[in-house]
Amino acid sequence: MKILLIGAAVLAVILLGPFLIPVPDLKGTVDPSLLAEEDSLFVRLENVNVHYKVSGEGFPPVVLLHGFGASTFSWREVFSPLADRFTVMAFDRPGFGLTSRPLGEEIKGFNPYTQENQVELTVKLMDHLGFEKAVLIGNSAGGLTALEIAIAHPERVIGLVMVDAAVYTNDGDNLFFKLLTSTPQGRHLGPLVSRLFLNDARSLLDLAWHDPSKITPEILEGYEKPLKANDWDRALWELTLARRKFDVSKLGNIDIPTLVLSGDDDRIVPVEDSVRLAREIPNAVLHIFPDTGHVPQEENPQEFLEVVLPFIESLSLIERSEDRNPD
């Protein structure tokens, strides 16, 4: 009987203990639109107030898709040089930056955190801006979104630039991740996990850069700014719950010019993953940046532009040629 009582007590602690841990709302956060910058723009798409920036008048249009924990800020070094030649748009994907974060009943009709709906929101934003087609440049998890757009809407994509794209990583295979996302106890604690993960932005940046000494106080401030937005922790958890494993068998069906980029010291998405990606996408071209980590557009912007600009220019020539000779 004593053993049974002890076992029941342990089970009760395991089952009920997590619910006794409070998950209070964050203090001092504001509506993300109040954090807007001079060149910030917003548009309401479905149930989301999307934050974006656009510049330039050249062809073709270029859409920039940032990675996990990032925002339009991660394109700051290359945005203007790209806009000198092309029409460039960067936006904060749902769950990040200054884009609004619907929750609860708001996302029952349209959940912006699913991969499918992130694809649809991107296409709707292209429609809003009059981009019939665009070159998609995606970094890390943004690369996966770009791939999904190319698969679901190939007619809207002129070319792909995969920057240290997180295609093969899948936290869903991790037992701890499964427990967190599949049990009521784990779901209750989820926002606390989000806070633990992103509150230490400096450690994450150190991991992302080959040379962390290049990370200035201004860069750290730029990454921490979205943590002042209402419900960033709960939205990040909704994004985590919505993650699904990518079907890599679809890669062989991509018939779009693709440039695959990787830093040679990427400690988040191993360079081997980018090599594999370039092999599995038909006719993809691979370039590896020396002495560079997970965000070459930030850490090595000059070489990034030296590789990316000619690639986009070549796509522009091909696209214009096809427009002149549709048959």
Rank of each mutant, 00 (worst) to 15 (best):
L261A: 04
T72C: 09
F96K: 02
D84S: 15
S71M: 08
F59Y: 15
V295Q: 04
G186I: 06
A278I: 09
W209I: 00
A284W: 07
L277H: 05
K178Y: 12
P282A: 07
D247E: 15
E319V: 10
L65F: 15
I268Q: 12
S203Q: 10
L147R: 04
I149K: 08
A201L: 10
S249V: 07
A8V: 09
A152W: 04
H294F: 08
D173H: 09
V275K: 15
A134F: 10
A141L: 14
E106W: 08
P102K: 03
L144V: 05
Q115I: 12
E319W: 13
P257I: 14
K228T: 01
D164A: 13
T181M: 14
V10F: 13
F197A: 10
E148D: 08
L20E: 01
I219A: 05
T240Q: 12
I312P: 06
F42I: 09
S321H: 14
H294D: 07
S40M: 04
R187W: 08
D291F: 10
L227K: 14
R324S: 10
V157R: 01
F131K: 00
E322K: 15
P290W: 00
P154S: 06
R93G: 07
L35K: 02
D247N: 15
S314W: 04
V307G: 01
H210T: 04
R324I: 04
I107Q: 06
D231W: 11
S314K: 12
E280I: 03
H287Q: 03
V13P: 05
F19N: 02
L204W: 00
L82F: 07
V50N: 03
S140D: 09
